[in-house]
């Protein structure tokens, strides 16, 4: 059965760039789902079988940290690995993200190799 990734970012452009970077990194997902904020991401996780999540932090409505916290409190989805992909990768923010279960972080701007190095071991 193929793998499914959920890309969470309020920027449609960045979601497209991340999708392209996944292909360039050789990470061929059968299904790429998209969400524009944390609320949409939670809804997508409830409706789909997702193997890994790539999430921005700085988003309106529900930001990436709020999404992680909510996800960590739901037993049905709490074990799905999440990698943060954001301009915000300071130690304090990443420590908070990891406290809610984030498995790693990729800083924008990024290369496909960096995506592969961070995401590959989780698949």
């Amino acid at each position: 059965m193929g793998k499914t990734v959920l890309i969470v970012d309020d920027s449609n452009t960045m979601r497209k760039i991340v999708s392209r970077a996944l292909r360039q990194a050789g990470l061929d997902f059968d299904q790429i789902l998209e969400a524009g904020d944390g609320q949409e991401a939670l809804a997508s996780l409830a409706d789909n079988s997702v193997d890994v999540v790539l999430s921005d932090i700085n988003m309106p409505n529900m930001n990436g940290l709020e999404f992680l916290k909510a996800k960590s409190e739901d037993p049905a989805i709490m074990d799905i690995p999440v990698v943060m992909i954001s301009t915000e990768t300071g130690a304090d923010i990443i420590d908070e993200a990891k406290s809610y279960g984030a498995k790693g972080a990729v800083k924008k701007p990024f290369t496909p190799d960096l995506i592969n190095d961070t995401l590959g071991p989780l698949l």
């Binding site: 449609n12 452009t13 301009t87 300071g90 701007p109």
Partner: peptide, 23 residues
């Protein structure tokens, strides 16, 4: 909307770079 979104994301990445540089 795509053009405004793309330039917004560039400004976001620029600001993130400056935030780290000043940190």
């Amino acid at each position: 909307a795509d053009v405004k979104d793309a330039l917004g994301e560039i400004s976001n990445m620029l600001a993130g770079y400056l935030k780290d540089a000043f940190a």
